[in-house]
């Protein structure tokens, strides 16, 4: 349980390395629900323009941790957070932080696709329009849908209800909706858990496309997904960070016995 602190450029020679440019820094983050601890003193960085996955068995606090990164836990009664989450040097839970402004910079895609019962176009345009976007909305909608690899499938029915799309299309629409805000960071909470294998493959391909422009943090309990898609991996168990490192390291030469047991499928 010792994430090393020496920066390493390559993980091929030395298996342990941590990112150089981090956009988010979790520092001894503890979260509890009405006094029941869910996350205990977790620290690790989120690398810029990389994909960081958070893995662990059900109930390990990975979703809770993810939702603390854009303060979605504010809507849950009785949640308290200790420690610091630094976003470009600012504490996300500081008194002078506006959570509304924060969520414009740190977007989120949820476990179940949750498009608004509006047209496909309006789903994408809504976020930018309430935030005073100036510019061509048509272009922004097209660009966001192209980025989310959905444009070809929906370009002829932009003004039809989003609820008529398949589950996988709805999830890509939700990704497009988040991308339309041009966030710095995209949080994804098990985005494929409600989807079939083909839609899942679509979205994993999409992750690779997106990481050149976005920093992505993805929670998953699908180990193949974590190993295929991410650059860094944090393994949580019972609210504790067991190990953090490059994905290759976590999956090939884990330092902790529990990590090895988990990634080889012996429990979880």
């Amino acid at each position: 349980m010792n994430p090393q602190t020496t920066p390493e450029a390559s993980d091929s020679e030395n298996p342990i390395s941590i990112p150089e440019n981090s956009v988010l820094d979790l520092q001894k983050v503890s979260i509890s629900y009405s006094g029941n601890p869910a996350v205990n003193g977790v620290s690790f960085p989120i690398a810029e323009h990389k994909i960081t996955s958070i893995i662990g068995p059900s109930g390990c606090g990975k979703s809770t941790l993810l939702r603390s990164l854009n303060r979605m836990n504010d809507f849950v009664d009785g949640v308290t957070l200790d420690g610091q989450i630094l976003y470009m040097g600012q504490d996300l839970y500081g008194n002078d932080i506006d959570p509304v402004a924060l969520r414009r910079r740190i977007g989120m895609v949820f476990q179940k696709p949750n498009p608004f019962p509006k047209s496909i176009y309006k789903n994408v345009a809504w976020g930018p329009s309430i935030n005073g976007y100036i510019g061509s909305m048509d272009e922004l909608v097209e660009q966001s849908l192209v980025q989310a690899a959905l444009w070809e499938e929906v370009k002829d029915r932009l003004h039809e209800s989003a609820l008529g799309l398949s589950g996988g299309q709805q999830q890509r629409l939700c990704i497009a909706r988040a991308l339309a805000m041009s966030p710095d960071i995209l949080l994804m909470d098990e985005p494929c858990s409600a989807l079939d294998p083909i839609s899942t493959a679509h979205i994993e391909d999409l992750l690779f496309e997106l990481k050149s422009n976005y920093t992505i943090v993805i929670v998953t309990h699908n180990m193949q997904q974590a190993s295929r898609a991410s650059d860094y991996t944090a393994f949580l168990e019972l609210g504790n960070l067991i190990e953090f490192g490059t994905t290759r390291q976590i999956f090939t030469v884990p330092q902790q016995k529990r990590t090895e047991e988990y990634v080889t499928g012996r429990f979880g």
């Binding site: 979605m72 809507f75 969520r103 414009r104 949820f110 949750n114 309430i130 935030n131 988040a178 805000m181």
Partner: peptide, 20 residues
Amino acid sequence: TLRQGAYALGATSFEVTTQV
């Protein structure tokens, strides 16, 4: 989940309520 989706786009309570 719709409210959360709207909040996650940087909407205020009033915008979430009246528009979603």
